[in-house]
Simulated scan of single mutants.
Amino acid sequence: MKEKLFLTITFAALTIVSVFSQSRALTFQEAEKQGIPFHKLDSLYKSAVHTDPALAVFKSPDQQAELLQAYVKLLQDLGAFLRANNFKWNTEARGANRIYMQPDGRIDYFLFHFPEGQLTPEKEQQFTQLLDSFIRNYRFAITAPEKFAQCSAVRYTDN
């Protein structure tokens, strides 16, 4: 009985570690279904920028400018990756994302949302798979002293 309980606890612990230790690309809704809603992640990752600099990871204007450059580079690199993998939007797609990163720039979670009707389910699935592949090896261009999150509205096009 003790062995079975130990195995169950060990399996549960390994499952939790694997869920929280690999890069994941998910819609906000899918993250919620999997028990990792953004508000839970927000409690684990500090905001990259904040109206109150004491609550931000990147406090100074110089640090924030560097963050913005790195964030734009990430989106440009993602666009290049999508093009290299023959992904076409075929229209402008507007959405939002929230990206959760390790201090060394590794991406833990890339949550995104497109309003209903922006993408077909097939196009969203293709985007999710490519995004998941992209973030597995991507390193954000700057590092930080602690885990952080960055969010924004986004506009994707084929141009």
Score class of each variant (00 low, 15 high):
residue 140 F to H: 03
residue 64 Q to M: 14
residue 35 G to A: 08
residue 100 Y to G: 03
residue 140 F to W: 05
residue 137 N to Q: 15
residue 132 D to K: 04
residue 124 E to C: 02
residue 146 E to K: 11
residue 49 V to M: 11
residue 24 R to L: 08
residue 10 T to N: 05
residue 38 F to C: 02
residue 5 L to E: 13
residue 49 V to H: 01
residue 30 E to D: 14
residue 103 P to L: 14
residue 23 S to F: 00
residue 82 L to T: 04
residue 91 T to D: 14
residue 154 V to W: 03
residue 52 D to H: 05
residue 76 Q to W: 09
residue 8 T to H: 15
residue 15 T to H: 10
residue 93 A to F: 01
residue 59 K to N: 00
residue 71 Y to D: 14
residue 60 S to R: 01
residue 43 S to Y: 15
residue 69 Q to N: 08
residue 99 I to A: 09
residue 27 T to Q: 09
residue 41 L to E: 03
residue 122 E to V: 10
residue 135 I to Q: 00
residue 113 H to W: 10
residue 112 F to E: 01
residue 120 T to L: 10
residue 72 V to P: 02
residue 7 L to P: 06
residue 30 E to I: 06
residue 138 Y to H: 11
residue 121 P to M: 04
residue 64 Q to F: 09
residue 21 S to W: 12
residue 147 K to P: 06
residue 36 I to Y: 05
residue 104 D to A: 12
residue 149 A to T: 07
residue 53 P to Y: 05
residue 66 E to R: 11
residue 131 L to F: 01
residue 1 M to C: 09
residue 129 Q to G: 02
residue 150 Q to M: 07
residue 129 Q to E: 11
residue 44 L to M: 12
residue 156 Y to Q: 12
residue 4 K to I: 14
residue 73 K to F: 10
residue 94 R to E: 15
residue 126 Q to F: 10
residue 90 N to D: 09
residue 32 E to K: 10
residue 97 N to F: 13
residue 83 R to C: 02
residue 103 P to A: 15
residue 91 T to I: 12
residue 86 N to Q: 12
residue 102 Q to N: 14
residue 80 A to S: 09
residue 142 I to D: 01
residue 95 G to C: 03
residue 125 Q to A: 13
residue 47 S to L: 02
residue 108 D to N: 13
residue 135 I to H: 02
residue 125 Q to M: 09
residue 74 L to R: 03
residue 65 A to M: 04
residue 91 T to R: 15
residue 52 D to I: 07
residue 30 E to M: 08
residue 22 Q to W: 14
residue 105 G to H: 06
residue 66 E to M: 10
residue 147 K to S: 13
residue 135 I to F: 05
residue 17 V to Y: 08
residue 119 L to Y: 03
residue 22 Q to P: 01
residue 134 F to E: 01
residue 85 N to G: 06
residue 130 L to N: 04
residue 6 F to K: 11
residue 49 V to S: 09
residue 64 Q to Y: 07
residue 124 E to Y: 01
residue 47 S to M: 03
residue 90 N to I: 02
residue 24 R to E: 09
residue 39 H to R: 13
residue 80 A to R: 08
residue 118 Q to R: 08
residue 101 M to R: 07
residue 152 S to G: 05
residue 104 D to Y: 14
residue 43 S to E: 15
residue 153 A to Y: 06
residue 30 E to C: 08
residue 89 W to D: 10
residue 83 R to H: 11
residue 96 A to N: 04
residue 67 L to Y: 00
residue 134 F to C: 03
residue 56 A to K: 00
residue 145 P to L: 07
residue 32 E to C: 05
